[in-house]
Structures are given as structure tokens and as C-alpha cells.
Design a binder for these strands. Structure first.
Length: 980
RNA sequence: GGGCGAGUGGCGGAAUUGGUAUACGCGGCGGACUUAAAAUCCGCUGGUCUCAACAACCUUGUGGGUUCAAGUCCCACCUCGCCCACCA
């Protein structure tokens, strides 16, 4: 018998598929459509690697499955050809990127075909070809005409040695990627005029549409985070001795009374106007320093830096004077570039206040304990008491159990709060010799007063009390107060409280942390762990304190009330902010689509008329940036000099090119009408084919997906599409790593070359099947050198089975033999149909393996030419065809078919073959498996119970015991609940 | 620091969503075929105890809980991975 030899059959069928156009999609077809694709490839000299093999096989399987199911299925192919790597290669080698692409891309054709991917090559696209980028430019023009494109000056990285602008990814550890030696200069920032798309206009609708997408959850979350919507308010502050006002954005207007200073970004325009002459020098120096700082430096320095401007703002509610500082932790590009600093409730403000010794005032009191009915409100305080000599804290311990509490009590009518707390301490502990005390925080707590039998809600001010000595006077405990004084480490008590669930001690824990943290700061406590007890900002909701008329309100309520009150005076307004910025679309680079703008001295920026598109990228000899911040195009004088489309006078072309993200943000639409010369695409045709049914990639690709969605939403507004979302389903698939879990990489030299695996004789089919089988698609797969031989063996078994069948003689099959074959076949068809649909390729393949194993067993009974065997083998071949297209096509033909297995061949499963006469029912005693019985399908409980009791093992477990009840799940299990 | 996710045999991973844990594959062991090897085919393969079998008990990161029944649900903890990271 002829052996399974992929080296023979794979090239054979690849050639036949090419000739017959099996994978050519009829975009006008009346069949239901299906469009499956992976993110298109960036062509480089390296060719495809194992990651590509994974990505494209995933969408190929999906496309093939649908094609076999009778869909007009389309698996398009294209090249994301513009971009930096090709340009850098051109600069180094002197070969134009146009020429490199012309040699590289045909190389990919061979590799894609060797993998057996069912691409439609008639509709191939490439973003660097004028016929494509004509429409990329048209998108720019469309943005411009719809007031969605504008020019602005932004800071850009600049390498003084290269005399060129750098992209973010070219800045490595603060230095230029080509000049990173120790004596090379740090990159600088330079102001550059750039083009932007106003994607922020679409922020809200792009955010809202996310929930309706059938995408991997983490990717949806990444989209949301990128957009970064936050709701809050803008509040306006008056500045002392100036008619200028300072507006800030905050999500916590409720903490306004806790604002103790203001911070503005160093680049904020107000800085120069308000800085007093005394502080001018220092502020200017700080601004310079901040401008030079790289991102890395900013992140390295954990300590907050800043400079006082000498100016003061007034708190619009309390009238309090607050110093205005500048600091680079406030970003010019977000909100208004200025904040009100609330150190008690914001980590960054807290750190800043500590650095510069600015006041910290708590205004939100967290609430702990469990809320109960009919609570009585009390006001009072607690004390955290420390003895520096023994380095221990004093607590109360209940006489009868080990509950530990702070000293606490309610305030009497007319009593001073601090007096009250110290009085309670004296009465409960007898401690009176106090060296120092101060307020550390205020908390609210719910508790049950066991002796008075009432529920309480208490507002407690917490004092840190430092003792002179531990001498005591007699305690004055009331009859019900049965507790005594104990000295403990703060860490022990904290651990104990934290271990108690239910949140009963939450407010105590906070009070203890704050108090101990303060004792450490003051230098009294030298033994508690400063990591655990570091004082920090109090984040979250609570009850308002130290906030004048808002005291006692819930913070969420105060938030609205304060904004409303200020709004009446025109000093505040609700405001939504987005983290997302407008899309910077211009690059001072050669290898991209030229921006279709002409600069005229008389008319300003003028759009190149649509009929003059494309603005063709001229071929040059030198592709390096021109040194003045412009691309190499600035040296292409003939190209650059043109006339103004409006006045006909002399004018210059824009020398910036478009960000490659634009090219990739609309390519899916071009796939649907790739050869259109008249328009970007025919809207009617796209409306038939949109959206992409299945899209996958091994990256969150947050920016790419967001930009593509933006284009979709814009096209919807323009009436070019019906569906604003371009990708219906997106699967974020895992990558392939080395066997040891390390990433594959050129530098590591551990790469796996898919073509080499194919060449070794295992073939593309075994490789494809292995990649889809080894792990769920969203899990990172580890490369197992034994894996491909394993799937090769599986395919060989199918091969042998079909070949043996072909050489066999006719046989008779008994009805139960036929049934057994059918049951096995249809179980596989059902499982594979469902699993491939749901992207569970690994279990789909497992189902086909199970079926093949069963057929091997059945084969020993009776094997030979018979309609049932013929059907079973054809079914197996058809079902593995999406994974292993070559072998299945070969065997399909060997089984007598004359048309391709890859169209309209997917078998349907029939439930009738899956219903068994007998089922295995598990028998449990008290939930433990004690045996199984074989019973007719849909047996009654009584019938199964009878069978079960006949089982010796079950019977022995039931002996001497009384059956209390039974649980019966038909066709599944019977559970006897017994007691001795 | 914040967010998300995951811990199941020697390994990659299954488990119809609360109902027989370890499907399928890899690896390992044994057998058949062969002069022999490779290839192929068949069988066994979670642990403890045991020469072996039977039986029993244990087992889904750890500890508790809910339930007739928990890998699956709830609470706490441990470990790992990923993404974001001064966004007010």
C-alpha cells in the first residue's frame, strides 16, 4: 500500500487549486456570505514564522469550514507594506522599498500557498500601491472636508545626531535607537506641526458600541481603557490679585473642602501670568527641566517634584487661600492641565504634600462595620495609645474572650471632643500621663452595643496618644464594662482584625493604620513595619467631615450637591473627559502615503482635488529624513513644487506622509471591492459583505481596532456602510512560545520555521492540525517537538484506513454494525460542527481522533466496500478537511468524488443515530460512586434502583443502612442518601 | 500601584456549566509483526497500600463553607501569567 507522503500530494493539490480557482470568491454570489480573516501581514525579508502559521491557519479553518457548509466564503489576502522597518532597510541598503516589496511579496505567495491557506489571490491588495493608497489619501481628504482633520503643534522626540524626528518606539531608554552609546546625547523634544484626526468626537459612540461586540473580553476592556471615559466636573478658582481664573477637572468635587493646594502642568499657559517675580527664576528653571525630561526619567523618579509659583487661589466654597504649584505629575494634555490637590484622598497629591510639607485634611470619613436596623447615632472618639518605652500599644481586651478593641466613648452634652476621648481613656485604662496627642482621622462605624442591646452608628474622631509613662490611676468602669488593659504590637492586632471577616473592623483597621503611621513619622514608634503602616490617602466613598454645610452627607450625594451649588454661581459644570487623544496621523517619513495637501502662500492649506489623486510617492535614491524635521520628500524638489489648485500660483506639497495605521484601518472594506477604480468601494457591494464575520490576531491591537472602528463609524455617517462596526467577531488568539515558555526571537535563535517542518516530510497538514490541536486558541501554545509527528501519525491512520478500504472487497454489514459505525460518525459530525463554530478547534480535532479510533475497532469486525463504510470514511475526510486540506482532498478523490472536498461537502448529523438503546447510569451512595448499571434509555427510577441493588458493591454499601431519600437524574445517575 | 485571567497526571490539555474527574494527544511500559531495527497494529498507564489481582482510601494550588452531590458556586489565603501604569 502506498504510504502517506505529504511531499507528493501537497504541491499537487496546491497547483490544482490554483488552476481551478476553488478559493476564488464570487462577490456577487447569491449564497450566504462569510468573511474570515486574520490581521494582514507586514512583509519583511524574514518570511513567515510559526506565529503567522498559527494566526492565518485559525482564520483559514474558519473560512474553509463555512465554505464546506455552503457559504460563499472569502479568505482574503493583503499586505501592510508601508512603514518604518522597510524604510530603515532602504536607508541602510540603498534599495528602494518599492523594489524590496516587489521581491519580498512574491516570496510570501509561495509560503502562503505551501501552508495550504485558502486565500483568494485574485483579490490581493497591498497598501503601498498607488491604486490602494489613492483611497487612503481620499480618506484624509474626507476627514478634512468633514472638519475631522486639523493641524497643530506638538512636541516630538528629536535626535540631534540624526537631525530627525523619532517615533516613540525609536526612543529606547531615553536615547535614539541608532545612537545609544554611553556618550550619545539623550533625545530631545522639538515642536513639530502635525496633522490630527478628531477621533475624540467619536469617543462616546465608540465606547458605547463596545458592549455589543462579540470580541474577546480582554480586548473589549482594552478598548474601554484606551478611551478612558471619566465623569466629573470642572471647577473654577479665583486667583488672588489677578483677574485670571484657574479651571480644574476633578472626578471628586465632593472633596473640595479637602483641597489644600493647586497644581498646574509646567506647560500650562497661566503659569507665566501668575508667577510672582520672587519665584520667576525657579519656576522657569523647573519648566525647562520638565520639558527635557524623558518619559523614562519621569517614571524612574518616584518622588514628586514641583515649584511654588507664589500665587494663591481661593477655594470657592470655604474661601481658603491655596498655594498654586507647578509639577510635572500634572499632565498638560489631560483635563484642563490643572488640578485641585486633595492630599488626604489622592495618592499622588498625598505624595506631593509629603514632599513639600503641605497640609493634609481629611474630608471623607470611611464607614466600617455592618449596617443594621434602628440604629442610634452617637458622636465621640477613640484613641490609639502608644508607650515609646516598651514600644507597645494599649488596647482593651474583653474579660471572657480575646476580642480586642480601641478605647472609645461617646461625647457628653457640651463636652470638648478631645476632652471626651481622653476622659474615656482615663476611665477605661487609668492612663493619664500624656506626652503628646493629635487627631489622625475620622471614621464612621456601625456596631451592636451588646450590653445596652441597641444598634449604633457612630462618628468617631481618632486620636493618636503618646504616653509619658504607663502609670495608672484607678479605672472607673461601669458595671457592664468587663474588660482590662493589654499591651500589644500593632502588627499583631492588625493581623487579627484583618482575619475577622464581615468587615466589622474595617474602620478600626483604618484608624490603627493611620495612627501607627503617624507615630512612625513622629519618630516615637521605631519597631512597627513602616511598609504596613505607611500613612496614605484614603480612597473611596464615605461620609463628609470638615466640609462645612456638607458634613454628614454621603460623599456621592455631596458630589452632586457641591457641583449644583457652584453651578448656580457659574463656578462649576459637569464634565466628561477622555483619556484618548486625537489621532496623530502625520509622519515625517518617506515610506508612507503622501498627505494630499498643498501649501499655498496665498490660499493656505489646500486639498489636492480628488481627481488628481493619488499623489504618487516619487522614487528617490536617498530615503533618510531630510534633517530639518521633514521627510526625504523635502529633497524631491520637482515633486514638491507644484501649483495651487485654487489660485494656480506656485505652491508646495505637504512632505509628511500618513501614519500606516490609516492604511490598515480600512483595508477590510477594500477586500470587499478590491479593484474599484472609480471609488473607494461600491457601497452596495460592501453592504452585502460587511461586516467581517471572523477576525483574529495575536495582539490586543488596541489602536488598530479602535481606528478601524472609527473609520467604520465615520463611513456609516457618510452612508457608505450600513453597519458601523467593521468586525463582528474578534478572537484574540495566543502566541506560540518555545518548549520552555520563552518567546521565540531572532536574538534567541530558537525560532521554528514552518516551512522547514513541512520540508522535513511532515507536511503542512500535520503542522496545521498540530497548531490547532495543541491548546485552545486563546491560550499560548508551547512548541512541542513531538507534536507534529503525533498529528502526522493521526493523518496517516486516516490515510491507511481509506487506502485499505479502496483495495478491499464488498462486505455485508449486520444492522447493529451499521448502527455502531453511524453512531461514531454522527457523534463526530455533531461535535466538530459545534466546536468549530464556537472556535474550540482542539476538541473538534479530538472528536475526529476518537471517531477514527472507533472505526479502527469496528474495522476488525467487518471491513470492506459498503455504502455505510463509504459514508463514514467520506465523513471523516470532509470533517478534517478544514485542518488538513491536502490529504482530505486526495482521499476525497480516492473515495470516488470528482469535485473538491472544499466546497459544499460538510456532512449533517442526524440525531437518530445518537440515541442509544442502553445508557450507563452512575450509582452513588451518599454522593460517592459505588458502581454503574446499564439500563434502557429513559428508565424509571424504580427500574434503575432495582438494577442498582442487584450490584454487589452497591448492595454491600446499602446493607444495614436506611435509605433516607434518593436523587434520580434520568439517564445519568441515581444517588442513595443513607444513614447508619 | 491598578485592572483582568489562570492554577486539573510526567507534559499539552478535556469535563455537555452542579451530576461517573483526568476525553484526545505526547511521553512511558508491555505485547504482536520482523532474522533485526524502523514503521505499523493491539493493550496498560493519577496516587497510596500490593509481586499481582480484588478491595479500600486519597486526589483538580491551600484552608473553610453551601449542597444528596463541587474542578465547577460562595469566603479567605498562596502562586503564576498578561495588560495598563502619574489620566486628577
Amino acid at each position: 500500500m502506498q504510504r502517506y507522503n505529504p511531499k507528493e500530494i501537497e504541491p499537487k493539490w496546491q497547483a490544482i487549486w490554483d488552476e481551478t480557482g476553488v478559493y476564488t470568491t464570487d462577490l456577487q454570489s447569491d449564497k450566504p456570505k462569510y468573511l474570515a480573516m486574520s490581521m494582514f501581514n507586514y512583509p519583511s525579508g524574514a518570511g513567515i514564522h510559526i506565529g503567522h502559521a498559527m494566526n492565518y491557519t485559525i482564520s483559514d479553518v474558519k473560512a474553509r469550514f463555512k465554505r464546506q457548509q455552503g457559504y460563499e466564503s472569502y479568505h482574503p489576502v493583503g499586505w501592510d507594506a508601508f512603514g518604518l522597518p522597510a524604510e530603515n532597510f532602504a536607508i541602510k541598503s540603498g534599495v528602494s522599498p518599492q523594489q524590496s516589496m516587489a521581491t519580498i511579496i512574491p516570496g510570501y505567495h509561495k509560503q502562503y500557498k505551501a501552508m495550504g491557506w485558502s486565500n483568494d489571490w485574485e483579490k490581493e491588495i497591498a497598501t503601498h500601491l498607488p491604486e490602494y493608497y489613492k483611497w487612503t489619501q481620499w480618506i484624509f481628504s474626507t476627514m478634512y472636508r468633514n472638519n475631522l482633520a486639523y493641524q497643530d503643534i506638538r512636541m516630538q522626540w528629536w535626535c540631534t545626531k540624526c537631525q530627525t524626528v523619532l517615533a516613540n518606539e525609536q526612543v529606547i531608554d531615553g536615547k535614539c535607537w541608532r545612537h545609544d552609546a554611553p556618550d550619545d546625547p539623550l533625545v530631545e523634544k522639538k515642536e513639530v506641526k502635525q496633522w490630527f484626526f478628531k477621533i475624540t468626537d467619536y469617543a462616546d459612540e465608540l465606547l458605547e458600541a463596545i458592549d455589543g461586540l462579540d470580541w474577546t473580553d480582554t480586548v473589549k476592556l482594552a478598548q474601554k481603557n484606551w478611551i478612558g471615559k471619566s465623569t466629573g466636573a470642572e471647577i473654577t478658582f479665583e486667583i488672588d490679585g489677578s483677574d485670571k481664573k484657574l479651571t480644574v477637572f476633578t472626578t471628586r468635587p465632593d472633596t473640595l473642602f479637602g483641597a489644600t493646594f493647586m497644581v498646574v502642568a509646567p506647560e500650562h499657559p497661566i503659569v507665566d501670568a501668575i508667577t510672582t517675580s520672587q519665584h520667576k527664576e525657579a519656576v522657569t528653571a523647573y519648566k525647562l527641566m520638565a520639558a527635557k525630561k524623558t518619559e523614562v526619567e519621569r517614571q524612574e523618579s518616584k518622588n514628586k517634584t514641583g515649584e511654588f509659583t507664589g500665587a494663591y487661589a481661593s477655594n470657592p466654597l470655604s474661601g481658603e487661600k491655596m498655594p498654586i504649584w507647578i509639577a510635572d505629575y500634572v499632565l498638560a494634555g489631560y483635563g484642563t492641565g490643572a488640578i485641585m490637590a486633595v492630599p488626604a484622598h489622592d495618592e499622588r497629591d498625598f505624595a506631593f504634600a509629603k514632599s513639600f510639607d503641605l497640609p493634609i485634611r481629611q474630608v471623607v470619613a470611611p464607614e466600617g462595620g455592618v449596617k443594621r436596623d434602628n440604629e442610634q447615632f452617637t458622636e465621640g472618639g477613640s484613641s490609639v495609645v502608644f508607650d515609646p518605652k516598651t514600644q507597645k500599644y494599649a488596647f482593651l481586651q474583653m474579660d471572657h474572650h480575646d476580642k480586642i478593641a480601641l478605647f472609645a466613648g461617646g461625647r457628653k452634652e457640651g463636652e470638648d471632643l478631645h476632652e471626651c476621648i481622653l476622659r474615656e481613656l482615663r476611665e477605661e485604662s487609668g492612663l493619664t500621663h500624656i506626652a503628646h496627642y493629635e487627631e489622625v482621622c475620622t471614621v464612621y462605624g456601625h456596631y451592636y452595643h451588646a450590653l445596652k442591646e441597641i444598634n449604633r452608628r457612630a462618628k468617631a474622631t481618632v486620636l493618636l496618644v503618646i504616653l509619658k509613662d504607663t502609670d495608672t490611676v484607678a479605672t472607673q468602669l461601669e458595671a457592664h464594662e468587663k474588660f482590662h488593659l493589654v499591651w500589644l504590637d500593632a502588627g499583631e492586632v492588625l493581623a487579627k482584625w484583618k482575619a475577622t471577616d464581615g468587615g466589622h473592623y474595617d474602620h478600626y483597621i483604618l484608624a490603627l493604620e493611620q495612627a501607627v503611621g503617624r507615630a512612625i513619622e513622629l519618630g516615637y514608634d521605631t519597631t512597627s513595619d513602616p511598609q504596613i503602616f505607611a500613612r496614605s490617602a484614603i480612597i473611596g466613598e464615605g461620609v463628609m467631615v470638615h466640609s462645612g454645610p456638607y458634613d454628614g452627607m454621603e460623599s456621592s450625594e455631596a458630589r452632586e450637591k457641591i457641583v449644583a451649588d457652584l453651578a448656580e454661581k457659574g463656578l462649576a459644570a459637569e464634565k466628561v473627559n477622555y483619556r484618548m487623544r486625537d489621532w496623530s496621523v502625520s509622519r515625517q517619513r518617506y515610506w508612507g502615503a503622501p498627505i494630499p495637501i498643498i501649501h499655498c502662500a496665498k490660499c493656505g492649506n489646500v486639498l489636492v482635488p480628488d481627481e488628481q489623486l493619488p499623489v504618487v510617492l516619487p522614487e528617490l535614491d536617498d530615503f533618510a529624513p531630510s534633517g530639518d524635521g521633514r521627510s526625504a520628500l523635502a529633497r524631491a524638489t520637482d515633486w514638491m513644487k507644484t501649483e495651487c489648485p485654487e489660485c494656480g500660483g506656485p505652491a508646495e506639497r505637504e512632505t509628511d506622509t500618513l501614519d500606516t495605521y490609516i492604511c490598515s484601518s480600512w483595508y477590510m472594506y477594500r477586500y470587499m471591492d478590491p479593484h474599484n477604480q472609480q471609488q473607494i468601494f461600491d457601497p452596495e457591494q460592501v453592504k452585502k459583505w460587511e461586516p467581517v464575520d471572523f477576525y483574529n490576531g495575536a495582539d490586543h491591537a488596541t489602536a488598530h481596532l479602535l481606528y478601524a472602528r472609527f473609520i467604520g463609524h465615520l463611513f456609516k455617517k457618510l452612508g457608505l456602510v450600513d453597519e458601523p462596526e467593521p468586525f463582528k467577531q474578534f478572537l484574540f488568539n495566543g502566541k506560540v512560545t518555545a518548549a520552555d515558555g520563552q518567546m521565540f526571537g531572532k536574538s534567541k535563535g530558537n525560532g521554528i520555521d514552518p516551512l522547514e517542518i513541512i520540508e522535513q516530510g511532515y507536511g503542512a497538514d500535520a503542522l496545521r492540525t498540530y497548531l490547532m490541536f495543541t491548546a485552545p486558541l486563546d491560550v499560548w501554545a508551547r512548541w512541542d517537538p513531538q507534536g507534529v509527528p503525533g498529528t502526522y501519525r493521526f493523518l496517516s491512520r486516516i490515510w491507511s484506513l481509506v487506502r485499505e478500504y479502496g483495495e478491499s472487497k464488498p462486505v455485508e454489514l449486520r444492522s447493529e454494525q451499521q448502527q455502531a459505525i453511524y453512531r461514531s460518525l454522527h457523534a463526530m459530525i455533531r461535535k466538530m460542527t459545534e466546536d468549530i463554530e464556537a472556535n474550540r478547534y482542539n476538541t473538534a480535532i479530538a472528536a475526529s481522533m476518537t471517531c477514527v479510533n472507533e472505526l479502527y475497532k469496528l474495522k476488525t469486525q467487518a471491513f470492506g466496500q459498503h455504502a455505510v463504510w463509504q459514508e463514514a470514511l467520506a465523513g471523516v475526510v470532509a470533517c478534517i478537511a478544514p485542518f488538513a486540506p491536502h490529504i482530505s482532498e486526495e482521499l476525497w478523490h480516492q473515495l470516488g468524488h470528482s469535485t473538491s472536498v472544499h466546497r459544499d461537502s460538510w456532512p449533517k448529523f442526524d440525531e437518530q443515530y445518537l440515541v442509544a438503546d442502553m445508557v450507563t447510569v452512575a450509582i452513588q451512595v451518599n454522593g460517592k460512586l459505588r458502581g454503574t448499571v446499564s439500563a434502557p434509555t429513559d428508565s424509571t427510577e424504580a427500574m434503575v434502583a432495582k438494577l442498582a441493588k442487584a450490584d454487589t458493591k452497591v448492595a454491600s454499601n446499602l446493607a444495614d443502612k436506611q435509605v433516607v431519600k434518593t436523587i434520580y437524574v434520568p439517564n445519568k445517575l441515581l444517588n442513595f442518601v443513607v444513614k447508619a
